[in-house]
């Protein structure tokens, strides 16, 4: 089990290394963002973000996230207020998404 204080992070709080992440770290990141505890719906999104990033080397767009993660746009904004793409990426331990959509 890793703790947040032990990992390197960017100034915006994203993990520097994808491999530093584990599920307990995600809970800590969620707590820091004020959305803890993570529900199975959150995890659906987090796992999808992480799997997509590992498979494609880039975070999915909000459009793809809404279509393919199993959680629609409306719910994404309820689960991750203040911006689902960025926040879910942060909790999933992947770099900040750099697309405009």
């Amino acid at each position: 089990m890793t703790t947040l204080t032990a990992v390197a992070r960017t100034t915006e709080g994203f993990l520097e290394r994808v491999e530093d992440w584990d599920r307990s770290l995600a809970e800590e990141l969620a707590d820091e963002a004020g959305i803890a505890p993570l529900t199975p719906r959150h995890w659906l999104v987090i796992d999808y973000m992480r799997d997509t990033f590992i498979a494609r080397g880039d975070a999915p767009s909000i459009r793809t996230l809404g279509k393919e993660s199993g959680v629609a746009i409306k719910e994404l904004y309820l689960l991750f207020p203040k911006g689902p793409a960025k926040l879910a990426a942060k909790i999933a331990g992947i770099p900040k998404p750099h697309g405009c959509i």
């Binding site: 909000i62 904004y77 911006g83 960025k86 405009c100 959509i101």
Partner: peptide, 11 residues
């Protein structure tokens, strides 16, 4: 539309 969507994405 890109500005509006981008705004929501930034909260």
């Amino acid at each position: 539309l890109i500005l509006a969507n981008g705004a929501r994405m930034e909260g």
